[in-house]
Amino acid sequence: MAYLYLDDSKHHCFGFSLAAFVICSDDPTEEMRSTYLKYGFDPSSFEFKSSAKMKGNHRLQELRSALKANIGRRCRIAVCVVNGDKKLGPAALKLLGNALDHPELAGKRHQIFFDEGLFHSTNAAAELARDDGALADCEFHFEQDSRTLLGIQLADIVAHTCSTMLLETLGHITKMIIVDEPRDSVYHGMEIELGFEMWAGIRYGFLSQNKPNPKDDFDLANVDVYRWGLFIDESVSEEIAAAAMGRFGENYLGCIH
């Protein structure tokens, strides 16, 4: 059994919204509670939001880094891209159907948790899920409150991270950052693109499979994310569909030194 949590990140002025599943082999709640307490946050009253101002707040930055490290180490990721809000929930169900065809998830029962506001109503969401035979082994929990369901806060991080990566691919973000790692690290003080830094932290998490017929060593180091870990809705423009496929369709897992 896996626990899947979905949250979204909306970017209407740029023509897309993105939703992301975080897929956990175990319920992440207790580990997340311990992590929050370690960095001085009360999980019963504090909600992590990627949109919160991080500059100058070292505890919050450290918490974010710890949560992202946990995602990259212990979770799997799947994303869908749509135009507007109304298709987010239905597109996420289509993504889920594709994800459940992956060998890690196929043939097992799963718990699925959706953030609030992704469907017209809980009844409409349940009906869509019932109509898809690929989702028969799932127990759904729609309209969940992210303030109390900590797993959705992990999905918030992934949705924000992946939408930032897509915005950079589309040319809307050109930010460079200075790597702040221990001084003996080869990366300390290096200037890199924001999108690269975000990708490097979660790249091992994308739901993927090895290429069936790799042509060379570089191809061998790339895995296919589409279609298990990526769904692109027909509502998006050709430009955004191409950018999403280029950004997420396959993933490089080789050395980046």
Rank of each mutant, 00 (worst) to 15 (best):
M1A: 08
M1H: 10
Y5V: 06
L6F: 14
D7C: 11
D8P: 02
S9V: 08
H12F: 15
F14A: 13
G15Q: 10
S17R: 07
S17C: 14
A19N: 02
V22N: 03
I23L: 10
C24D: 11
D26G: 01
D26H: 11
T29W: 02
R33M: 11
T35S: 04
T35P: 00
T35V: 10
Y36C: 07
Y39P: 04
Y39H: 15
F41A: 05
P43K: 09
P43E: 08
P43Q: 08
S44K: 11
F46Y: 12
S51Y: 00
A52E: 07
A52G: 00
K55A: 15
G56I: 08
N57V: 05
L60E: 05
L60C: 09
Q61M: 14
L67P: 04
G72P: 09
R73E: 10
R74H: 13
C75M: 15
I77T: 01
V81Q: 02
N83S: 13
D85M: 07
D85V: 13
K87A: 14
K87T: 08
K94D: 11
G97L: 09
N98P: 02
D101T: 14
P103S: 11
L105P: 03
A106L: 09
G107R: 09
G107E: 11
G107W: 06
R109V: 01
H110L: 08
Q111S: 10
F114G: 07
L118H: 06
F119T: 03
N123G: 05
A125R: 03
E127H: 13
R130Y: 09
A134S: 14
D137N: 13
E139Y: 10
E139K: 13
E143G: 06
Q144S: 13
G151V: 01
L154M: 11
A159Q: 11
H160T: 05
C162L: 12
L167A: 04
T169I: 00
T174P: 00
I177G: 03
V179Y: 05
V179T: 14
V186C: 06
Y187C: 02
M190R: 15
L194Q: 10
E197A: 15
G201I: 02
Y204M: 12
G205M: 00
N213K: 11
D216C: 07
F218T: 07
L220M: 08
A221R: 09
A221C: 06
V223K: 12
V223Y: 02
D224P: 00
V225N: 01
Y226L: 02
R227M: 02
W228Y: 15
F231M: 04
F231I: 03
D233Q: 06
S235Y: 13
S237M: 09
G249P: 01
G254D: 10
C255D: 13
H257F: 03
H257S: 05
